[in-house]
Simulated assay, not measured.
Amino acid sequence: MSSAAEAEAKAVAAVAAISTRGVARDFTAGQQTIRVLHGIDLDVRAGELTYLVGESGSGKTTLISIMCGILWPTEGEVRLFGTDIYHLSDSDLVDFRLRNVGFIFQQYNLIPAIDAASNAAVPLIAQGMDRLEARDRAIELLAALNIADQADKLPNQLSGGQQQRVAIARALVHQPRLIVCDEPTAALDARSGRRVMDLLREVALADDRSVIIVTHDNRIFDLADRILVLEDGRITHDGRDMPKDH
């Protein structure tokens, strides 16, 4: 790489929400080592709604797990808002994630023994906020997602779509700078899915935030600022629209 190109790459990385360089990840199965990511170089800009698309087994979940500090890379570097996260201590990395990252899991991962508002308030309580204040803030967000009337119900009393919206509220309630979503509209009808995506897009457009969404839902492709296609652990497409062969 020329000195000018290297300087440009460093400048981009300095303003990127996420910057990865040479990220690879191996998994071991018996005596066999399988490489599922192959040297990913990627900059995700703040204020951007980015989709990550690919077939099952292409490495999507592994990549987003590495980008937000859940899974260590075998090789490479990850900077999140300028911080080299894999050079943090374990406790500092946990604290960094708590303050900066919101997760929306495909399986929701709600706590069965507490109601919807308390589930949505978990990140605020973990940061030390008073429980009643945290709950009030969570209910405000549940109202924005049109399920405030379900605030006192346990997860097993909610439909799949309602549980997903509680999970979305939990991811947004502490106003993280990065929101990572795994199929956030999969369990929702078209109207509810659009409402959720409008909210996520509003969040993504903030200058100091970024949203990454793993999705196969072609109903929402038009909302993306950027679509990345991952195939066999490599990014094969990076653009505003899906390639015609997908």
Rank of each mutant, 00 (worst) to 15 (best):
R194G: 08
E8R: 12
R45H: 10
D41C: 01
V196M: 14
I114V: 10
A190K: 05
T61N: 10
L124R: 05
A190H: 11
V78E: 11
R97C: 08
A126I: 10
T20D: 04
L110W: 02
G22I: 01
D41G: 06
D92Q: 06
R234H: 12
I212A: 01
P155H: 05
N109S: 09
V166P: 05
A224P: 11
R45V: 13
E202N: 12
I111C: 02
G102H: 05
L158H: 06
E6V: 02
E48S: 07
A187N: 12
A171P: 15
L154K: 12
V23F: 15
V53K: 04
A24V: 04
A190R: 01
V173E: 06
M1Q: 12
T236N: 06
A204K: 00
A116N: 08
E140M: 10
P184S: 10
V229S: 05
R137G: 07
Q32F: 07
V44N: 05
L230A: 03
G22Y: 00
A7K: 03
I114A: 06
G57L: 10
R195K: 10
D232F: 07
L158P: 04
N109I: 00
D238P: 08
A138L: 13
A113G: 15
M197Y: 01
K153M: 01
L80Y: 03
E6W: 06
E183K: 00
V94I: 01
V101Q: 01
L158F: 15
R25M: 02
Q162L: 00
D245H: 07
R97P: 09
S3G: 03
E202C: 14
R240L: 12
D90C: 14
S3M: 03
G47K: 12
S2V: 07
A120Q: 11
L228K: 14
A204S: 14
A11H: 02
Q162S: 04
L199Y: 11
S65N: 02
A16Q: 05
R209C: 06
I227H: 04
G160N: 00
D217G: 06
D115G: 01
V36N: 04
D149V: 05
I111S: 14
T185G: 06
Q32A: 12
N156A: 14
P112K: 05
L93A: 10
R226T: 02
W72N: 13
I34D: 08
K244V: 08
I212P: 00
N156W: 03
D43P: 14
A24S: 09
I40L: 14
L205Y: 15
R35C: 07
I139M: 12
G76D: 07
P155I: 15
E75A: 05
I168R: 08
D136N: 15
Q175Y: 11
V180F: 12
G128K: 15
R201P: 13
A13T: 07
F81G: 01
D222A: 08
A143V: 11
I70P: 09
D43K: 05
A46L: 09
H246L: 14
A11K: 15
G161T: 01
E77F: 10
D245S: 11
F105L: 09
E55F: 00
L49I: 00
I34K: 10
